[in-house]
Amino acid sequence: MSDGNPITPAGMASLRARYDHLLHGERPPVVETVRWAAGNGDRSENGDYIYGRKRLREIDRELGHLAKRMAAARVVDPATQTERHKVLFGCTVEIADDDDNRRTLTLVGDDEQDASRNRIGWSAPLARALRGAKLGDVRVVRLPGGEKNWEVMAINWP
């Protein structure tokens, strides 16, 4: 599953919700403000016009980015995974290093990663090293600070 940009159904729904909010919630009032400000005459000294246009560009740039991410994404539902004995996209894995420091991580799409919730992106170095591992496997992760060994202690699925 290394091809494409995998994303969970919840992750895709979140991208769509953000896109819809920008397109239908934030953009129309800004367009209306710019239209109103443009009708007031001199645009070079019109703050509403200048800042409205700037905000409109920001919204349009983010809409373009979200559209590209959604077009490139491939929705993968972890609940339908058949090889539940391996570390694959969507699983939650408990790992331990050589000093028995344990971490529990969920492998999600790169657009869904959130370190504060222990969700790491599919293309992160640790996720790449753990792909396909089975219970008890030890994987070496190469990081800028050096190599670190991680043993798979548990694999859980939604």
Rank of each mutant, 00 (worst) to 15 (best):
4 G>V: 10
5 N>Y: 09
8 T>E: 07
13 A>E: 15
13 A>M: 08
14 S>E: 11
14 S>V: 04
14 S>P: 07
16 R>H: 09
16 R>I: 12
18 R>K: 09
19 Y>S: 10
20 D>K: 10
21 H>D: 08
22 L>A: 08
23 L>G: 03
24 H>Q: 11
25 G>N: 02
26 E>I: 14
26 E>P: 03
30 V>T: 11
32 E>T: 06
33 T>N: 15
34 V>P: 08
34 V>E: 12
34 V>C: 05
35 R>H: 14
37 A>E: 11
37 A>I: 03
37 A>M: 08
38 A>F: 12
39 G>H: 12
40 N>Q: 15
41 G>I: 07
42 D>T: 04
43 R>E: 15
44 S>D: 10
45 E>W: 14
46 N>S: 08
48 D>T: 11
48 D>M: 15
48 D>S: 11
52 G>W: 05
53 R>A: 11
53 R>T: 13
54 K>D: 14
55 R>I: 00
57 R>W: 05
57 R>E: 14
59 I>L: 08
62 E>W: 00
63 L>R: 01
66 L>D: 00
68 K>F: 00
69 R>S: 10
70 M>R: 05
73 A>H: 02
73 A>Q: 06
75 V>A: 02
76 V>F: 04
76 V>Q: 12
77 D>P: 08
81 Q>H: 10
84 R>F: 04
84 R>I: 11
85 H>R: 12
86 K>S: 11
87 V>H: 00
87 V>T: 03
87 V>R: 02
89 F>M: 10
89 F>Y: 10
90 G>N: 05
90 G>P: 05
90 G>A: 12
91 C>D: 07
92 T>W: 00
92 T>D: 06
92 T>H: 00
92 T>Y: 01
93 V>M: 05
94 E>F: 02
95 I>W: 04
96 A>T: 05
104 T>S: 12
105 L>A: 06
106 T>S: 12
107 L>G: 06
108 V>N: 06
109 G>Y: 06
110 D>M: 12
113 Q>P: 03
115 A>I: 09
119 R>M: 15
124 A>V: 01
125 P>R: 01
128 R>K: 14
129 A>Q: 03
129 A>R: 02
136 G>S: 09
137 D>N: 11
137 D>G: 01
139 R>Q: 05
141 V>H: 07
144 P>R: 05
146 G>F: 04
147 E>T: 09
149 N>P: 03
150 W>H: 06
150 W>F: 14
150 W>V: 01
152 V>D: 00
155 I>R: 03
156 N>E: 14
156 N>S: 15
158 P>S: 11
